[in-house]
Design a protein around this nucleic acid. Structure first.
Length: 287
DNA sequence: ATGGATCCCTGGTTGC
DNA sequence: TGCAACCAGGGATCCA
């Protein structure tokens, strides 16, 4: 589910509830997410203070005052939502962010200041781990990640260097977290549509001018999506339980059969499968 | 190194 | 209405 914009939106929503706050109580209700949670995680976290919430790619990193960092990944269906401890649960109340105990609530943090932060993940593709803060970047899940697309290092020169000689389709290359970190199926489709690049085009066969356009477009799409609070298709919610609304802005993703929204293009959005995953694109204006 | 298929898991939707 | 097949924002792992 959550790609970079969704994870960044969740991170920002968690900051007021978690940063510079102690974890008064950590509760692990189901210890097997994608992998087993770290040994004695609840005990190690209880009493620790969250100094800072960071994001790297699709991971949220909580730096703790015990010299360790909690790494959180939401997988496909993971949510991190905040509710007030003091809030009474009102059955059926529409805007209540967090019914008291929901199916698939796997980890719960009661924070200093009164917020309750709940990790919910139906499919359990999500993960958590603890690692020394000084070596967080060396964690096996993070070590091989490519550059942040919204960071200073990401530009046309870098993208061109990394695409040079690559024969695989650009769609698959942009999904590869080692090439650039944080893009997923939605934003790759959207960026390629906006840049007018055919998803099956070999990465090494994109001209310089179009690589420049692609680099700019990737940043734009991600930035706009963050400003819209991410895209909610099924599981994704912001930290306050609200939906994102960038899905209303999709030009290609999940729009098979719809007219291409590109100005002056009379094409129709098509769906193909690449590497086992749906790609949506306009065969008319993406070349 | 690179590219492809397979698997992890649950639940919603679709088609018969 | 029931049930099976298919699909889903990710990504590790194994194989050619």
């Amino acid at each position: 589910m959550p790609e970079l914009p969704e994870v960044e939106t969740v991170r920002r929503g968690l900051v007021p509830a978690m940063e510079r706050k102690r974890i008064l109580q950590a509760d692990v209700r189901r210890p097997d997410l994608r992998w087993p949670l770290p040994e004695r995680m609840a005990e190690r976290l209880t009493g620790a203070r969250v100094e800072r919430l960071r994001r790297r790619s699709k991971y949220i990193l909580a730096d703790l005052d015990i010299g360790e960092t909690l790494i959180i990944h939401l997988g496909m269906s993971g949510r991190m939502t905040v509710s007030g401890l003091a809030e009474a649960y009102v059955p059926g109340e529409f805007h209540h962010a967090h019914p008291l105990t929901l199916k698939h609530d796997h980890v719960v943090f009661d924070m200093e200041g009164g917020a309750r932060v709940t990790f919910n993940d139906a499919r359990r593709f999500g993960a958590m781990d603890l690692i020394d803060t000084a070596r967080a970047e060396e964690h096996p899940l993070l070590a091989a990640l490519g550059p942040e697309p919204l960071g200073n290092a990401f530009n046309a020169d870098l993208l061109a260097a990394r695409l040079k000689g690559r024969k695989g389709p650009i769609k698959a290359l942009l999904l590869d977290q080692k090439l650039v970190a944080g893009l997923g199926n939605i934003y790759v489709c959207e960026a390629l549509h906006r840049a007018g690049i055919h998803p099956e085009r070999a990465g090494g066969r994109i001209g310089r001018a179009r690589i420049e356009l692609l680099a700019v477009t990737i940043r734009q799409v991600l930035q706009e999506a963050i400003e819209a609070g991410g895209s909610s298709l099924r599981d994704y919610r912001q930290a306050d339980g609200e939906l994102g609304y960038f899905q209303h802005t999709f030009r290609a993703y999940d729009r098979e059969g719809a007219p291409c929204p590109t100005a002056g293009c009379d094409g129709t959005i098509r769906r193909i499968v690449q590497g086992g995953r749906s790609t949506y694109f306009c065969p008319r204006c993406q070349r």
